[in-house]
């Protein structure tokens, strides 16, 4: 797995575990499926953990865990399945301030959109990272310098910039 952020490749602090037993054996933060998150939190009170949720998950199912988890990994079954983008927006709207990860076979061309929807990082399978190395992700991220949609990404939208320019003039 390769983990990519806006500034480049970073090391993954989390270790994935599919069962509670496996999760309890991990030193350091565990990344567990939503279904065992509550049990894990109970068994290891105070321990740092992340939850893994499919992009199709309703926000109602994710919401109860957003206070405890420091990482939410939204799983993309395919690069063309855009549900994860909408789930990210909903998670951010809930006030989640931890790390939001897009996980799956995304392509570099989606990096800017993922960041604009609130994702912090992208976790790529190795086969994808070999074909599309980190440099391509950083380059793709920078191809479009502006966006029209207010409420996405960090900088002001084109609409907001126009308004600011008019008020400044």
């Amino acid at each position: 797995m390769t983990l990519i952020r806006e500034e480049g490749a970073v090391k993954d602090r989390f270790t994935r575990a599919d069962t509670l037993d496996a999760a309890l054996e991990i030193d350091g933060p565990a990344l567990v499926p939503l279904t065992i998150a509550a049990d894990f939190a109970k068994a290891r009170p105070g321990a740092e953990f992340g939850i893994s949720v499919p992009g199709s998950t309703p926000i109602e199912d994710v919401r109860p865990h957003l206070g405890g988890a420091t990482l939410v990994a939204v799983e993309f079954p395919a690069f063309a399945d855009g549900r994860g983008f909408s789930l990210a927006k909903k998670i951010v709207r809930e006030g989640f301030a931890g790390t939001l990860r897009a996980s799956g076979p995304l392509i570099a061309d989606e990096f800017a959109d993922a960041l604009a929807c609130g994702f912090t990082e992208v976790e790529l399978p190795e086969t994808m990272a070999n074909r599309q190395p980190v440099q391509q992700w950083l380059a793709a991220r920078a191809t479009m310098s502006e966006h029209y949609q207010t409420g996405y990404g960090r900088g002001p939208s084109i609409l907001q910039k126009r308004l600011a320019a008019r008020k400044g003039a």
């Binding site: 983008f85 959109d113 604009a116 966006h147 990404g153």
Partner: peptide, 12 residues
């Protein structure tokens, strides 16, 4: 303008 390269709605 709003729909052009919308970050959330390009993979409908």
């Amino acid at each position: 303008q709003w729909s052009s390269l919308h970050p959330e709605f390009v993979w409908l």
